[in-house]
Every structure is written in C-alpha cells, then in structure tokens.
Design a protein around this nucleic acid. Structure first.
Length: 472
RNA sequence: GGUCCCAUCGUCUAGGGGUUAGGACACCAGGUUUUCAUCCUGGCAACCGGGGUUCGAAUCCCCGUGGGAUCACCA
C-alpha cells in the first residue's frame, strides 16, 4: 500500500464558486473517493482586500448541494492538520518564513508600489519581459516603510516535474522572478501559504486548473528551499466559454447556486462537469456518482481545453428529470411552482407534474409550463385556429360544452366524446383539439388534451369553455 | 511581446501506423401523435496546413498556422 491519497480543494473567499472552480473540486473529490483517500477543503483567505463577506457560506452551500462532502475542513472535527483556514495559520507561515529568511532563501524588499510600476513600464517600453531580481530590490528602508519577503530564485538546473496530466514539464529558472512570499500586511501570498499548507497537511496530489501551470515552478522551488518533497501535480484542462476564452464573469459564468436556483439537479451538473475534460473511454454518457468514482483516473483526464456547453447540460438535466419517479421529482420541486399553485394540494400538483415531467429541462420552467393548471389563462384570440371563423368557433364551443356536460371526465370518456364530435360533424381533429387546447391552456403547445382536461376537472374545463363564448 | 500549453464533426469526446474515423449534444428529415415534449429511425457534419519518417500517417517527428493560459504585495 502506497502513501495514502490526500487531496485538497482550496477556494478563496473572494467570490462565489462558479462552474469552472467547482469542476476542480469535483475532480479532486472523485480522485479522493476513487483512491479511498481524503478530500480536504481549505479556505485561502490571504487576500484581505478582496474578501467577500458571504463567500464562505456560498462556497460550502455549493459543495454541499453538489454532494462534494469534505472529509476535513473548516467546521469539521479538528485534526492534527488543522486549522483549515489560512488566516488562522499565520503563525505557521511566519515561522516557516523565518526559517527561509535565515537560510537566505527569502530577503526583505522595501521597494514601493510606485517604483514597481515604474520598473514594469520601463521593461514594457523596451519590450523586455519584466523579471524582478534582487539587484532591483531595495534592501534597506529609507524611513519606516513596510517590506515584503521575496523568494530568491537562484540560477541552476531547470525545474522539472512530471505532471499527471501533461507529462514532463520543464522550466528554466531564468524566466522565473523573485516572487513575493509574504506581503507587507504580514499575510503570505498564495504561493507560500499553499506550499506550506500542502506540505503540512500531507497533500499527496495537487489537482488544480491548468492556469496554475506557470506558477508551479515557483512552488517547486519553495519545496526545494524547505527540503520538502513536492506532491504530484495534476493540472486540469481549462474550462472555456462558448467564445473559447476562459470561463469567467463576463460570460455570465454562472455560479453554482444559480444552477441550483434554476432547478438543475446536482447529480446532473456533476455528471456534466465530469465530462468536461474526462471520459472513461466508453460511449456511456449518464453516470451515477458511484460510477464516476469508480471510473475516475487521472490518466484519462484531457489536456486540451473544454468548452462549457449549456445545451448539453440541459439535455443531461432533462434525462435526470425524466428518470426520477414522480414522487421523487415532486419532492425536488419546492420553490419552483408558480405562486398561484400554493392553494392547491400535493395530489393535484403531482398530477400536473406528471403531465409536464418529460417536457422539463430544468425546474424553473415549471411556472411557464403549468400556470394554466392553477389559474385561468388569458386567451389570445390570435392563437385560435384561423381556419374557423368566429361563428363556427362559437358553434363548436357550444356544441362541445353540451357534449361534455354529461362526461365523467375520465380520459377515456373525454377522448370518446371529443373524437365522436369531430367525426359526426366531419371536422378535423387537429382543428377542434387545437381550439380546445388554446381555450383551456392559453397556449398552442401543452400536454395531451385529454389528460389536461381530466386533471383540470369538469368544473374548470367547462367554465373556461363557457367564458370564451363571451369574447367570441 | 516573453514563457508554457493545446489542436478529431459547431460542441463534449472515442480511437490511433492499414478503420466505412465511433458515440453523445445541437441541427435537419421521417415515424408515433390532437399540439409540444418524450420515444424510435435516418441524415448532415471532423482528423488545421506543409514537410518529413514509413510499403502505408489522421495517428510518430519537425515547421507553420490557429487557439488558450500566464507574466501582481489575486488566488
């Protein structure tokens, strides 16, 4: 048995979890479960300026909605690895920073922000890549200005790692710059805190988005400076928007809770997200979580970027909605019914749901699909069959009222009477049914007519037919 | 611009020295049907280009092109 698998998902509470982020969380989760290892959530709140107050709540709500339950993390029973919030680990970072400072791996830099911008602009003007080195640093204070701790990148052999997804990666040290490890406010940067924590928490695999590839060499240098063994790195392909650019706010990159609120099922989102950059080599499309866990291996993670396709998500969600039993689906519909449905009981709503289940792509469509079951629709007379003039329409409606007056409103009887009427009057079924459909539902597209009338009931159905005669 | 990465239908992808290059979404057509949806059947649609290597390349190599990521006291 090799060293146990421990992976982590380290969100920063500077924003909400969007689908790109959560894909990383999912892959970590699947990898951990597959290997019977630990899935750890660590909050990286070292950017004090951009903290978003309710982001942490949002992040945990998102993970729990998707069922990505952490084994270790904030709010969970304490372990020797905790705490799992970086702002509570400051002493640790200072202690390790001190160690590197003594070793000469870190140095104090008093360079001002203005000076830094100036240097960058100069480099820009000369079309040279800007690379901060110790020669550029201001090693002594002029007054009482704050300093940062920079990591000294020494020249040497290339930094190499064997990425579990991308294969061997090789970086020349010349292109790396002396990055900041501890900021002037005393907080560590991502690079520093991340490495210290991953080591202390005995993280075995760092599975994160591909945008981290360029900073991985810095992390490796840090491991080297400490004399620590780096974890295995596995970078996940970027998730792109339809315009092929990295998914972000400007795509309206929806955050996870927005999908919840639109009535996507978590298992459907998980299924879809898992297919973004991973497949098991079969033609299987629909996976339970257990199947994903079983199938998930890093070997089969893609290195080419994947475009997020909302239409495919809709399809998968529809598949899941259709596969649910009526009771189970009903249980998920809370909060999605139109307001007018409130005064109706569960039995009635379930019957309605039964009629629209196969038409739903996501639950937020419920109101537009079902509102006429709960309140009389407004009738747009332009939707009535154009082949019939007002007089003919009126006659048919009146005949129909008479024909249905004695019906028991079972689907079978409804069908018998309506078809019978069409036949004896030598009319077209489509025309008459279309007419009734618009009168009853206010729409030209709706569930089956007999089922609809049956569920709606005799009183409401006849009432709607009668009402229309007044406006014809 | 520097560095790095990526490249099979519009999209997600399978495959990979010799295949009719497979599946799914979307789209189109037909069937079922009272509409819509579901369901069934069929169709459209791809190996970025050029050189090599090879008996043979979409597959391996090189170059080009295109796309992406990243170059912060943000993560």
């Amino acid at each position: 048995m090799s060293k146990s698998v421990r992976v982590r998902f380290p969100p920063s509470p500077t924003g909400y979890l969007h689908v790109g982020n959560v894909r990383s969380a999912l892959f970590n989760y699947l990898f951990a479960r597959h290997a019977r290892g630990a899935f750890i959530v660590r909050i990286e709140d070292t950017d004090r300026e951009r903290l978003v107050p309710d982001a942490i709540t949002h992040i945990f709500d998102s993970l729990s909605w998707l069922g990505l339950t952490p084994d270790e993390g904030p709010g969970l029973p304490a372990t020797t690895y905790g705490p799992y919030v970086q702002s509570e680990r400051l002493k640790l970072y200072h202690q390790y920073a001190e160690e590197l400072l003594k070793k000469g791996e870190l140095y104090k830099d008093y360079t001002s922000a203005e000076r830094l911008t100036e240097l960058r602009q100069e480099a820009q003007a000369k079309k040279q890549p800007f690379r901060f080195t110790k020669q550029l640093a201001q090693l002594e204070p002029i007054g009482d200005e704050p300093y940062v701790l920079r990591f000294r990148v020494k020249l040497g052999s290339d930094v190499i790692w064997d990425d579990a997804v991308w294969g061997e990666q090789r970086w020349q040290r010349e292109v790396l710059d002396d990055f900041v490890a501890v900021k002037s406010d005393g907080y560590p940067t991502y690079h520093f805190a991340n490495v210290v924590d991953d080591h202390l928490m005995e993280i075995s695999h760092v599975i994160r988005a591909a945008e981290w590839i360029p900073s991985t060499p810095k992390h490796i240098l840090l491991y080297e400076a400490f004399g620590w063994k780096p974890p295995t790195f596995a970078h996940l392909p970027t998730v792109l928007g339809t315009d092929k650019a990295k998914l972000s706010k400007r795509h309206g990159a929806k955050n996870v809770l927005e999908y919840r609120d639109a009535g996507y099922l978590p298992e459907a989102l998980v299924n879809y997200l898992a297919s973004l950059g991973f497949n098991d080599g079969t033609t299987k499309e629909i996976y339970t979580e257990a199947e994903l866990i079983k199938a998930f291996v890093l070997d089969r993670v893609q290195s080419s970027p994947a475009v997020f396709d909302p239409e495919r998500l809709d399809w998968i969600n529809g598949v899941y909605i259709r596969s649910l039993s009526l009771d189970k689906l009903y249980a998920r519909c809370d909060g999605f019914w139109p307001a007018v449905a409130a005064k109706h009981d569960a039995i009635y709503k379930k019957r309605v749901l039964g009629l629209v289940q196969e038409r739903l792509k996501y639950l937020a469509e419920l109101p537009e699909l079902t509102s006429f079951f709960f309140s009389d629709p407004a009738i747009d007379t332009k939707l009535l069959p154009k082949q019939l003039d007002a007089a003919a329409t009126r006659t048919i409606v009146e005949d129909l009222i008479a024909a249905l007056e004695n019906s028991d409103f079972s689907e079978a009887d409804l069908e018998k009477r309506l078809r019978g009427y069409v036949k004896t009057h030598d009319l077209k079924a489509g025309q008459v049914f279309g007419l009734v459909r618009v009168i009853i539902t206010g729409q030209t597209a709706a569930p089956g007519l007999f089922e609809t009338l049956h569920v709606l009931g005799k009183k409401t159905s006849l009432w709607r037919l009668q009402a229309i005669t007044h406006i014809l």
